[in-house]
Amino acid sequence: MTPLTATAVGKRYRTRWAVRDCSFTIPEGKVVALVGPNGAGKSTLLRMAAGLVRPTTGELSAFGTPLRGRTHPDVSFLAQNRSLYRDLTVRELVRACAAMNDRWSTDRVHEVLGLLAGVDHDAKIGALSAGALTQVAIAVALGRLPRLLLLDEPLSDLDPLARDEVLRIVMTEVADRGTTVVMSSHLLSDLREVCDHVLLIDEGRVQVDGDVEGVLAEHRVLVGPAADEAGVEGKLIGATRSGRQSTLLLRGAGPAPAGWVSTEPDLESLVVGYLRASRERRSSAQRGHAGRGAKSA
């Protein structure tokens, strides 16, 4: 069963649309990188998937059940601010969470807390390091034995060692239980090695959605003479031109014309290409509608 489906989902805060017309399907067992610049709508999307925020338009379903502002029992969500009770000890927090959840495995929580350097069960939540705090938050999220794990910026504020450790905890969960994971980050480099599916959103809209290998194979970077772009086939996503040379990112590109070099992009340059193109559309729209305010295309 599909862990998460979004159909034409939108969320408006007063006059601003944080998420617009988003449709996608998250396949089971995938590790999904939800990427996009700050303010793209990633957190809003995750909060809607967690059932904490109701969409203004459209619908989200988890494992076939429409979410109506309630958290699905098979879904766990880690909020960006790791909202945990700071005055409790780790032990007290685990006990409180056990009381709040119908399905709960204290064994699983202890297992995750025992990974890596281990977390002191008598430490106050407020006194933990950023890495240990994230470990506790993930342990509690996994205590619900989720089939879909939603992590909002799980690596922000962590030093490189803690990042690596948190990723190892999450990947071990995937290896052990086949859990589907959606992780957001504004830094793609954090997730590049662990994701097999990418969901790129910007301006609240889905820009790229698909299996990483498949998405990369669909695109080409062509480098060649700026004066001779006529022979290039495919859908132009973005271009940078410097003097005589053009660098084009294309979807469904044909064979490279003479004088052009074609390579498959890496995930990073693909994402940057899409984001740059969307920023250019935005700024040209703003120029075009000067005085009337920006209008979305």
């Binding site: 067992g29 995938k30 590790v31 690596d164 450790e165 990723l167 190892r168 990947m171 071990t172 995937v174 290896a175 052990d176 090695e193 662990v194 994701c195 097999d196």
Partner: peptide
């Protein structure tokens, strides 16, 4: 095993 690899280096077990 995939789990052993994942424990050693943070990569996706599916990979």
């Amino acid at each position: 095993s995939a789990r052993e690899v994942v424990e050693a280096i943070a990569v996706n077990p599916n990979t």
